[in-house]
């Protein structure tokens, strides 16, 4: 019936490549993802990601490019 997304608490999640996304705070995380420490509404989480995810490159690439440069 009514959309209750606003009530649902989401969490900022991150994988080993330091790619960010959001997931439901009360649901099990898919393998390879961990909580990044921020929880809130979905919109809050996305706003947080906008602030903290400054480099979209996967971590492994970032590290390889740093060594080869």
């Amino acid at each position: 019936m009514s959309n209750e997304t606003a009530e649902v608490t989401h969490a900022v999640v991150v994988n080993d490549e330091e790619q960010y996304s959001v997931w439901w705070a009360d649901r099990d995380l898919p393998a390879g993802w961990r909580k990044a420490g921020f929880e809130g509404t979905r919109a809050d989480c996305l706003a947080h990601i906008e602030q903290v995810w400054s480099d979209l490159r996967p971590r492994s690439l970032r590290e390889r490019m740093a060594t080869s440069a």
Binding site: Y20, P30, G32, C45, S54
Partner: peptide
């Protein structure tokens, strides 16, 4: 230049065999 939009549309893949996929 749009991390939030990326995070919104590219989400954890709960069905992947390999860990950490989107």
């Amino acid at each position: 230049g749009s991390p939030a939009l990326t995070a919104e549309r590219f989400v954890p893949d709960p069905f992947a065999e390999a860990p950490g996929e989107r």
